[in-house]
């Protein structure tokens, strides 16, 4: 059979070039703009394709004059928490769903899936209320059971438990982490494993927990790494919720800090070159991570045991 591979190659090449150009153009513009000084930018009258020589100077200002370096650390911690919590919960939940059959499995699975359909952006106000006082359900429970009334009689004063997680790493990370998309990926992977594996482990005397740690975890390493990376970057780029949950600049992640950089003085033209330098600074870590882990990610999302 003779195929016109040349024609296919050529078409593929053209499509690839268009795609690369589409993705790279904004990045190139960001780089170019970041190389201008504020004065050069203002006199040029907006974003263009001019090359300047102030790139290093802008970067230096980002590091020394803004809060971005500290906020970069916040981003790292929050993203690690988001990815870690997501992977840990999805892994254990999927383990239970796949290896332990129960009549209620489909209900549990549906509920798990439902979290995907309720993104955080939709629930920001409720989530804020809960994070502002995580003891709220406890108070409510005490109220319902009458224990609150009882303690009021004994102590003489009404007591409300209060524990706010606003402005904390965990308070920012937890709500972002509560979605179960990875369950799909892990489920497919677990189902591709030999069915007799858990049975063999049971015969060897391993408890379900041991099976999970000794057998399942090492086997799932590739999909785990891939999804971890995925959620790390997902946590890194979160904007709305961290903006709401972290009011002080010290607790804000870099993406929020970057946005704050834009509107410091309302009557001045924003320092776009500095902003662009900041954007490049903030995206540096995810880009490096993707570059390094590229192969792992592709292999892990391939959903097969290798």
């Amino acid at each position: 059979m003779v195929e016109d591979t040349r024609g296919i190659d050529r078409t593929a090449f053209v499509i690839l070039v268009i795609g690369v150009a589409f993705i790279l153009t904004p990045i190139v513009i960001a780089f170019l703009t970041a190389s201008l000084s504020y004065e050069e930018f203002v006199s040029a009258g907006g974003i263009g394709l001019n090359v300047g020589s102030s790139f290093l100077d802008n970067m230096r200002r980002i590091v020394t004059e803004t809060r971005l370096p500290g906020q970069l650390w916040n981003s790292i911690v929050i993203s690690l928490l988001v990815a870690g919590i997501k992977c840990a919960f999805a892994f254990t939940a999927t383990f239970a769903l796949v290896f332990y059959e129960s009549r209620w499995n489909w209900i549990i699975f549906s509920l798990t899936i439902a979290t995907v359909m309720l993104p955080l952006e939709l629930l920001v106000i409720t989530t804020y209320q809960i994070v502002a006082n995580v003891a709220m359900p406890l108070n409510w429970l005490l109220q319902i059971t009458g224990l609150a009334w009882l303690s009021e009689q004994v102590v003489g004063a009404k007591h409300e438990y209060k524990l706010s997680l606003l402005d904390t790493y965990i308070g920012v990370a937890l709500p972002i982490a509560t979605s179960s998309t990875s369950v799909f990926i892990y489920r497919q992977f677990f189902l591709s494993l030999p069915k007799d594996l858990p049975r063999a482990a049971a015969m060897d005397g391993a408890s379900p927990f041991r099976f999970m740690i000794d057998i399942l975890l090492p086997l799932s390493w590739t999909p785990l790494v891939a999804t971890f990376m995925f959620w790390f970057i997902g946590g890194w780029t979160q904007y709305l919720w961290p903006l709401v949950a972290a009011a002080t600049p010290d607790a804000q992640p870099a993406v929020v800090g970057l946005a704050k950089l834009a509107n410091t003085e309302p009557d001045r033209i924003p320092d776009v070159p500095l902003l662009m330098a900041g954007a490049l600074f903030v995206s540096f870590i995810p880009v490096v991570l993707i570059g390094v882990m590229q192969r792992q990610i592709v292999r892990g999302l391939n959903l097969s045991e290798k």
């Binding site: 015969m203 005397g205 057998i215 086997l219």
Partner: peptide, 30 residues
């Protein structure tokens, strides 16, 4: 009783060896 407390062992159709362990660790896992 749980399988391990019965004093029996099983050979499976699809071998069900642990793919990430050496044969030594496979045999010695129990």
């Amino acid at each position: 009783l749980a399988p391990k407390d019965r004093g029996c062992a099983m050979v499976f159709q699809n071998y069900a060896l642990y793919p990430h362990m050496t044969i030594r660790n496979n045999i010695g896992y129990a």
